[in-house]
Simulated assay, not measured.
Amino acid sequence: MPKIICNNPLSCEDDIKDFVLEGEVDISFSGGAMRLASKRPSSEGQKANFVLWCPKVFPADIMIEWEFRPIREPGLAMLFFAAKPKNGPGSIFDGALLRRTGEYEQYHSGDLNTYHLSYFRRKEPSERGFHTCNLRKSYGGFLVSQGADPIPDASENADWYNMRVVKRGSKVSFYINDLQIFDFYDDGMTFGDLLTGGNIGFRQLSPMVAEYRNLKVTWI
């Protein structure tokens, strides 16, 4: 039987009191949602980006759901999941690992193995004209799957979108508002070992502003 193992509305500061921030971010709450915006200008490049981790370690077979609303672009929104230390057991927050500050190289070629789901990509000119959702796998940042992004451009009046990742065995599926965006079957060899359980985290690129609410993780 499926079992809900995380049900966080992300509606107030207390909801994220144990979350781990890497980088500098302005976090505010209004209307029952969490709004994220970098404190640093995009002119600083990767140094302006950030990751906000949920501290809970999740099992291998899970469904991750959250609601997302893009307020201002350009930028990019990403979910890390199944994140673990690359070299053995332990926590991704272990002080023995290299310090992470939001710069992308630290995540795709650092001390972690993880999936990277970029589901709102409006950073580079090519991304702003041709919208895709990308799934990458680290160590190495390999692009392993891709699908069309149905979300319109960011706006203060943007709708909420229901995001869902289903990770079961060797299969990863992604949906937006119940529309299937892609399936990926991991053979555990071509792009490294099969990723099992681990942490999840929200990543955002400056100067994007976005809102999040109702994070739910179900053990399946």
Rank of each mutant, 00 (worst) to 15 (best):
Q146I: 03
K123S: 07
I62E: 02
T101W: 00
F68M: 01
P74T: 14
E105C: 12
Y107L: 03
K86M: 05
G129S: 06
L117D: 10
Y161C: 00
R136I: 02
Q180W: 12
W66H: 11
A148R: 15
V165Y: 04
Q180V: 07
F174H: 12
G88F: 14
E156V: 13
A83L: 01
W66T: 11
T114H: 08
G169A: 02
Q180A: 10
F130E: 07
S155D: 13
G110H: 12
F68E: 02
G90R: 08
H131E: 05
K123C: 08
I62R: 00
I64T: 03
K84I: 07
H108N: 07
R100G: 03
T114D: 07
V165I: 04
V165F: 01
M63Q: 02
I176W: 10
Y115G: 06
N162M: 10
N162R: 15
F142M: 12
V166E: 15
S170M: 08
E103H: 04
W66G: 11
F130S: 10
S173G: 04
D61A: 03
S91L: 03
R122F: 02
G75D: 01
A148M: 08
P70W: 09
P125L: 11
S126E: 12
H131N: 12
Y161R: 02
I71S: 06
V144N: 05
K86E: 01
P85F: 06
G75T: 05
K171I: 10
R99E: 15
D94A: 13
Y107Q: 04
A158H: 10
I64W: 08
L98A: 12
Q106L: 07
L179G: 11
P55W: 10
A158W: 11
G90Y: 02
A96G: 08
N177L: 04
E67A: 13
S170C: 14
V166P: 09
K167V: 01
L79K: 08
R69K: 15
P89T: 07
H108K: 15
P59V: 08
F58H: 03
Y115W: 00
E105A: 15
I181S: 07
G141S: 13
L143K: 15
K137F: 05
Y115I: 12
F68K: 00
F174C: 05
N113E: 11
Y119V: 00
E124H: 11
F81A: 02
R121F: 07
M163T: 10
